[in-house]
Simulated scan of single mutants.
Amino acid sequence: MKPLDWVAFRAAKSFSTSEDSHFPNIKTFLGALYGNLYNFEGKSAKEISQLMKEKALDITGPFLYKQNENDDIDIFFKKPAILKKEKENDNECSDQIYKAYIDKNIKFNIGKKELNGLRYKKMDNLDDLNKNFINLKELEDLKAGNLNIKDIEKNSLTNIPYKIERKIGIELEKGKRRTKKGALYSLNYFRFEDNAGFCFFVEKDDLNLLEKYNTIKLGTKGKLATIEVIEIDTIIFDKVNDVEKILYTLTPSFMESGILPKNSENIQAIANYKSETIGFWNGVENKPGELIKVVPVGSCYYTKGEIDSLTDEYDYYGFGKYIELKR
């Protein structure tokens, strides 16, 4: 999906009247894609809601992408929470990356579930990576168990294909030429480079939405984005044959406990990011829906044996998608 202009997305409202914008979850894009059925085919919001729950369109994302001059596609993923690097000193930049492993000597409980702690091969002088994203090649290297990713720090945030422009404003009272008390808002505009935008991996499209429509209205103000379907080869969705593996989340996961799914018997350890609050729009009743807390993209779950799902609900919105990594 290539935005033709800036795009912005409202964040979930808090108790204050101040709000921000952020990258959206997959439900926003599903709503935009299914919106074509409402606008052009006369489907009702109730019918569209049912199609969503039947997963007539099953996609995984969103991810950022950029098409290079030689037409290669570079896709960016949230940095896995298990990666650390050596701190840089004054004279050189370290390229040594460490991946967390289970330490069975460390135990702690979440509810009634006992989990193991995590350690790194080197525990002192560690730091976070200099960036929030890794690209497809780096993720493939990580999946293959290659930690000597020499260029991982060179692909810095400056290479992410968008710029942020910020706007701050005050809401006016309806029908009056005066400001509404406390109604301060801020909005981040994401302006993408040429041949860059959002992308998804498509598992199923029973309605042929992605072939039938080549544009959607996206985000605040309904800005246009074009749709293009292409094929790429990647190993990231291949299964890991080991009994013990790491599940790296590609989409948000809703868990009633806030950190563990209901079926957590085979989970041994976790490396998760701080939970996020997201909100849905209730299209059937035409009003804001519930606010929920989710485990963010990039969180990692160490498992022994198979696990049914990494989300307790909203799987029909694409929640709980993950890929398997080697320990």
Results as ranks from 00 to 15, higher is better:
253 S>F: 03
5 D>K: 05
295 V>Q: 02
275 S>F: 05
74 D>K: 09
7 V>C: 03
114 E>V: 09
260 L>T: 11
276 E>A: 00
64 L>H: 09
107 K>G: 04
40 F>H: 03
70 N>S: 13
36 N>Q: 11
133 F>I: 01
91 N>F: 00
82 I>H: 08
228 E>H: 08
267 I>C: 11
190 F>H: 02
89 N>M: 03
50 Q>L: 06
135 N>Y: 03
186 S>F: 01
127 D>S: 13
56 A>V: 08
151 D>H: 00
8 A>Q: 01
11 A>H: 08
190 F>M: 05
80 P>D: 08
9 F>D: 05
59 I>E: 01
78 K>C: 08
21 S>W: 11
211 E>C: 06
24 P>T: 11
294 V>S: 11
21 S>D: 13
183 A>W: 00
294 V>T: 12
70 N>C: 01
151 D>A: 01
243 V>Y: 08
180 K>M: 05
301 Y>P: 05
256 E>D: 10
162 Y>C: 12
188 N>F: 03
223 K>D: 03
49 S>C: 06
87 K>Y: 01
116 N>M: 07
172 L>M: 14
49 S>L: 07
269 A>M: 05
42 G>P: 09
249 T>Q: 05
102 I>K: 07
261 P>Q: 11
79 K>T: 12
114 E>H: 06
15 F>G: 14
61 G>R: 10
62 P>V: 06
